[in-house]
Design a protein around this nucleic acid. Sequence first.
DNA 1: GTACAACTTCGAGTTGACTCTAAGTCAAGA
DNA 2: TCTTGACTTAGAGTCAACTCGAAGTTGTAC
Lengths: 131, 131
Amino acid sequence: MDTIHTSLTIQEAAATTGLTVHTLRYYERIGLLMPIGRAANGHRRYSQQDINLIRTLNRWRQTGMSLVDIQHYVKLIEAGDITAGERRAMLEAHRETVVRQMEELQTTLELIDYKIQNYTDIEEKQEQVKA
Amino acid sequence: MDTIHTSLTIQEAAATTGLTVHTLRYYERIGLLMPIGRAANGHRRYSQQDINLIRTLNRWRQTGMSLVDIQHYVKLIEAGDITAGERRAMLEAHRETVVRQMEELQTTLELIDYKIQNYTDIEEKQEQVKA
DNA sequence: GTACAACTTCGAGTTGACTCTAAGTCAAGA
DNA sequence: TCTTGACTTAGAGTCAACTCGAAGTTGTAC
């Protein structure tokens, strides 16, 4: 049966978000996700909105925001538009850390390229000796 | 006494590398750093070469290379020029992960800016209501 | 000569973020 | 009906990377 589902099971949610079912339940348990809707049998059903939120939170996670801070961010969302200013402030702070990370990665990239060149030179010298 | 020291104490090494003295000793203990030279009293003395290596390893760390992989990298350095090819391979692999991280950060940056704009719009609407 | 601070080792404890297990419920298929 | 497999909860276990504490040594400052 190819149900046109507007909501996803936990397996499907895991598949589309790249998290595991364990992690999805864990996130909900620690209050990082608002309680997810349930089917008649008690099983979780993830709405498209849930999925979008999870994708967003996952981006914050993967760029170094802690679970505690993300928790706070979600609380702000739940509290409604009145918290828009505070949410903006959080994102502006996170923006700074993202920019700093990019700078560090850029510097590291240059170091890597420099060292790769060094190692390549050494390898070429070794080839010459053999020849 | 302003000694012109060519080598640094563990405190000084911590200060210039941004690591803690605990972490410096920990790194040495797990074999991530080759044994550091000692003064007559048994205290560690970090040479400029040690400091340079620590700075480099710290870059690999802060861009996501695991301690186990860094350990391996240091072993290769200790083994000399013969390992240049393997070191180059490691750095080429790490280069890939660094580039991927940068891409992810860039995407996240765009999402952050989009959301900051959203929140700013909401805040402006709230100002209008008050006025 | 004794207090003090900085060092030493070794092992234990902590933190953040999962990850897994046990025990149980429930619906669909053979 | 019985098995199978996905789901549920609560709590325990794991892992990487530190981080700290205890007990002891040493070198300068008063």
